[in-house]
């Protein structure tokens, strides 16, 4: 961390990058607004919130450090079962503390497995991470006397948050709780990626050899960010268990990791909001399609993916930028709202 004090140009640069933009304020205001606007949909909002945190954790390693993973559910699952077991056996009852503890468990696993992941090709990383998650799933199934096996870990209750706010049937507490956790961890991630540490990750992502040549300890940086990411994923898993009061084998499932990757691809990696936006889009699409056609929603969501890629995200973004102007003009309000603030670096 000594780089920060000695290299003032870097400090200046990070300060510039890290400046808070109006779009970001708008985004979080929307999140707050959703509390009032969709008061009967707290449950799905809660799901979006922990999913967003989960996607954020993948963004840290994929979008910033370029480590692909198809087994991020491993950490999610450890967090989920961690919290469940802590609550069930009454070891740590208070949710926030349990959350931290579960996050740390996932973090420990992340640190250990990071050594397997930092070397290798993209494809072998995909498969090693996937293999780890599937192994954990089998372990959880095998030790069913601890985990409840296929039936899942059930029959425990989650104590009120900070001893004050009980989880209610409407999901209000759950939503506020998840959103606050998401926001706090988002701020931490934002701080992290805009620090010299984050810059060095981008350098590694862009060109590993060159990064090595300028003296960045590549392996150590990758291990560090992988470990942090595991913590985030563990917390997301813990939130999942705390808001649903159950944990089952599918927390480790391949589908969970795969969906996560899709979410990040939809939202775009490397600017922190990608996972958040992707989670919102993904869940809402799923919800809309599956309530219209519970049997065949998979088809329509697949179609959306196909169209997204065929049209191309760049073009969509351009449309998104032009659309408000166009609409306003249509309505005879040609004020030309500046919709074009450039977002952070796209991969």
């Amino acid at each position: 961390m000594s780089d920060m004090t000695t290299l003032s140009p870097v400090a200046a640069s990070t300060a510039r990058i890290g400046r808070w933009r109006w779009q970001e304020t708008a985004f979080w205001l929307l999140v707050v607004a959703s509390y009032f606007l969709f008061s009967d949909r707290y449950l799905i909002l809660t799901e979006i919130a922990w999913l967003a945190l989960f996607a954020l954790s993948l963004d840290l390693i994929l979008g910033y450090a370029g480590i692909v993973s198809l087994g991020h559910a491993a950490f999610f699952g450890v967090g989920a079962y961690g919290v469940g077991l802590l609550a069930k056996h009454g070891i740590i009852e208070e949710p926030v503390l349990a959350l931290l503890a579960a996050g740390l468990m996932a973090m420990a696993l992340g640190f250990v497995t990071s050594f397997l992941v930092i070397r290798g090709t993209d494809l072998s990383r995909l498969m090693v991470t996937l293999g780890i998650a599937l192994l954990l799933r089998e372990l959880a199934n095998r030790f069913s006397d601890i985990t409840g096996g296929f039936d899942g870990l059930q029959g425990f209750t989650i104590a009120p948050v900070l001893g004050l706010f009980e989880f209610d049937i409407f999901g209000r507490t759950g939503f506020v709780y998840c959103t606050v956790v998401l926001f706090v961890l988002f701020l931490a991630a934002r701080r992290l990626v805009n620090s010299p540490f984050g810059l060095s990750l981008r350098a590694i992502h862009n060109n590993r050899l060159r990064a090595e040549a300028v003296g960045i300890p590549v392996d150590r940086r990758l291990i560090a960010v992988y470990t942090v990411s595991a913590f985030y994923a563990g917390v997301a898993g813990a939130l999942f268990t705390q808001t649903t009061a159950l944990a089952s084998l599918d927390v480790f499932a391949f589908e969970r990791s795969a969906d996560l990757l899709l979410i990040l691809v939809i939202g775009g990696g490397g600017y922190l909001y990608g996972g958040l936006i992707g989670a919102v889009v993904f869940k809402i699409l799923q919800e809309i399609f599956s309530s219209i056609t519970p049997q065949y929603w998979l088809f329509w969501i697949g179609l959306v993916f196909v169209v997204i890629v065929l049209v191309g995200r760049e073009r969509m973004r351009r449309w998104a930028r032009v659309a408000p102007d166009f609409l306003l003009r249509r309505l005879g309000l040609s004020r030309g709202v500046g919709g074009g603030g450039s977002r952070g670096g796209e991969p």
Binding site: D40, R41, L43, I44, E47, G152, I169, F170, G171, F240, T244, A245, L246, S248, D250, S290, S291, P294, Q295, W297
Partner: peptide, 22 residues
Amino acid sequence: ILKDDAALPDNTKRLAQELIVN
């Protein structure tokens, strides 16, 4: 009202909760 939970218990729980509350 038909809902698909894809046999995932967390989906089941959320759907049941929404059906009851909403």
